[in-house]
């Protein structure tokens, strides 16, 4: 009986002393954490994509609190997230434009020539280091590093060896554009519809020899463009000035290689892409 009593008392005493010590430490070491930061972090998607320009969702939330970021800067979450964030912050969400990734190369396995067979590490970055197997030194290598970089299931490699962006899934974080060693992917606001799907700066004759859909810098689109200065030739490549160029398909009609196209990005959604390959 005595032993049980002693056991209970000694354990109780040890427990009480420790509890007191912890309670004291808790008071002393209280961390002043802003509950707003917690709430904001909770409202963000949490994918840490870096699309807002900050290192992660939490860092973005802290920047929001300090006033260094705009509530609608989160591209991954879209308008719903910016609405939620603005509600927590107590400000007006404002309108925001979504960016989407555009793959500026149409020279897949069927169109572009390969001068060798690459058998190394199957990533585009590694292949770039070897000089790559494509004759065109500006075209897509087709190993899908951009698809691996996408965290939103918004990209896939098609059977022609080119990446496709799903218009409905892309949040405009730009991870694919950063992953591409040849800088083929550009980020554009979704109201841009006219693109030259080629990055080749080779002379027209060579560009056409190695790829059926290369821009050969013939200048027909420049002549046909209804807005002056909308399309210009630079380094053997037609370059579109999106601020000036008309948003219509007038200028693309005479393109001999059909590398300038209008409004095709928005036609590809995830569901209709997979429906089309199942057929």
């Amino acid at each position: 009986m005595g032993m049980i009593l002693i056991s209970a008392l000694s354990m109780g005493a040890i427990g009480a002393v420790l509890a007191g010590f912890l309670a004291f430490a808790d008071k002393k070491m209280k961390v002043e954490e802003d509950p707003m930061v917690e709430a904001l972090t909770g409202a963000l998607p949490g994918s840490n994509c870096g699309g807002c320009g900050f290192a992660g969702c939490r860092v973005f939330a802290e920047a929001l609190m300090k006033g260094n970021a705009l509530p609608n800067a989160c591209v991954a979450g879209g308008s719903e997230t910016s609405k939620a964030v603005a509600e927590i912050m107590g400000v007006d969400a404002g309108s925001m434009k979504r960016n989407i990734a555009v793959v500026l190369c149409k020279g897949g396995n069927n169109e572009a020539e390969r001068r060798a067979t690459y058998r190394g590490e199957m990533t585009c970055t590694a292949e770039t280091l070897t000089g790559a197997d494509k004759s065109c030194s500006y075209g897509c290598l087709g190993l899908g590093e951009c698809v691996d970089a996408c965290k939103f299931d918004a990209m896939a490699m098609n059977e022609n060896g080119l990446p496709v962006v799903f218009y409905d899934k892309c949040v405009g974080c730009g991870a694919c554009a950063r992953a591409c060693p040849r800088n083929i992917i550009e980020m554009h606001p979704e109201d841009h519809k006219l693109f030259v799907y080629c990055r080749s700066r080779d002379k027209g004759a060579y560009a056409k020899k190695v790829c059926k859909v290369a821009c050969i810098a013939c200048g027909l689109c420049v002549k046909d463009c209804s807005a002056p200065g909308g399309i210009a030739l630079k380094d053997n490549l037609a370059v579109i000035n999106h601020d000036v160029a008309p948003q219509n398909d007038e200028s693309i009609k005479r393109c001999p290689t059909k590398c300038i196209l209008y409004g095709i990005e928005e036609s590809v959604t995830r569901s209709n892409y997979f429906a089309s390959i199942r057929k």
Binding site: M3, I6, S7, S10, M11, I14, G15, L18, A19, F21, L22
Partner: peptide, 16 residues
């Protein structure tokens, strides 16, 4: 004279 309590005692000390 209750050294058999060492397991219990050590565990709560470590937890704290």
């Amino acid at each position: 004279n209750v050294p058999f309590l060492q397991y219990v005692a050590f565990i709560i000390i470590i937890a704290a």
